[in-house]
């Protein structure tokens, strides 16, 4: 808890757009991006301070080939979380431990996106395939496209949060620029998604801040995010979710087209017994 107050003070500072002078140009995040990561589908550690639940280094997830971390998993083994991470409150630790034990027993934890469900924030940062950021000509909003199952986030610029935003899958995201950095602040998330690939829970009180900035060579979109959710975490923590440029091109990837999971088992996907219209 000793970390909390300074972090909250920092969040309040960065999330207050009026303190920042208006920029005449915005940083160019155009193009297609795909995550670069040490272990696929997971966050990287922050430069310092409390970090995300990560793979148990004693039992690394294999499947991505050594030296080629961007290749997909083949012949993968269990995802073993390091649930000794001190960010976890007991209830969260118990859940992650239980999920990890199930993984080791041969019952993989199924991610929401595998079931054609929204990933939520911040877990959407761990989606594979292309990501694209589209700033509207009006300058009023940025739409973030995740081509894996066409997940979409809307970020409204230079406006305050709603007084009581409804709890939704992607929450309510507002943003502003601080020089070369886009800062996105998200609240109003429901509690139905996981925080990460290991099933770490979050509540509907979760508050996520993301900071996007290009590397000096412009080949990396550096993303640092911060998570605050006192219900499940002992402290505010942060993580890295960098992207690299991707030239493979956009593809239409429709999850509901296939009603089986990657595990080969029949998995329920969202369906509508009664159509909307």
């Amino acid at each position: 808890m000793t970390h909390r107050l300074p972090f909250i003070a920092l969040l309040c500072t960065v999330a207050w757009p009026t303190l920042v002078p208006a920029e005449t140009t915005i940083p160019d995040f155009s193009g297609l991006w795909t995550r670069k990561w040490v272990t696929p589908s997971t966050y990287d550690a922050p430069a310092s301070g409390p970090g995300p639940v990560m793979i148990d280094q004693a039992q690394p997830h294999h499947g991505h080939r050594a030296g080629e971390p961007d290749l997909p998993d083949v012949d993968s083994n269990a995802w073993v979380a390091d649930y000794s991470n001190p960010i976890l409150k007991p209830e969260a630790r118990e859940l992650v431990k239980r999920i990890t034990e199930q993984e080791l027993a041969g019952h993989p934890h199924v991610e929401h996106q595998t079931l054609c469900m929204p990933s939520g924030v911040p877990e959407i940062l761990n989606l594979r395939d292309n990501m694209q950021m589209l700033p509207a000509p009006s300058g009023r909003d940025i739409t973030i496209l995740y081509w894996r199952d066409h997940q979409v986030r809307h970020v409204y610029l230079d406006v305050p949060h709603s007084a009581n935003p409804p709890k939704t899958w992607y929450g309510e995201s507002i943003g502003h620029y601080e020089g070369d950095t886009l800062v996105i602040d998200t609240i109003g998330l429901n509690d139905k998604t996981d925080t990460d690939r290991f099933g770490t829970p979050h509540s509907d009180q979760i508050h996520v801040t993301e900071r996007y900035r290009l590397s000096k060579d412009r080949d990396t979109l550096e993303v640092v995010f911060t998570v605050d959710d006192p219900k499940f975490f002992t402290t505010v923590w942060s993580g890295r979710a960098d992207y690299r440029r991707d030239t493979r091109g956009i593809r239409e990837l429709i999850c509901a087209e296939n009603q089986r999971s990657a595990l080969g088992e029949q998995q329920p996907i969202p369906t509508a017994a009664k159509p909307d219209f």
Partner: peptide, 28 residues
């Protein structure tokens, strides 16, 4: 085989093709 697995295979095919200098439709 499933959205995930199929996409994974596509990624392998794409990466393999690129390493071999092969062609893939490059839409953008």
């Amino acid at each position: 085989i499933a959205g995930i697995a199929a996409a994974a295979l596509l990624m392998v095919a794409s990466a393999d093709a690129q390493r071999r200098g092969g062609e893939r439709p490059k839409e953008e």
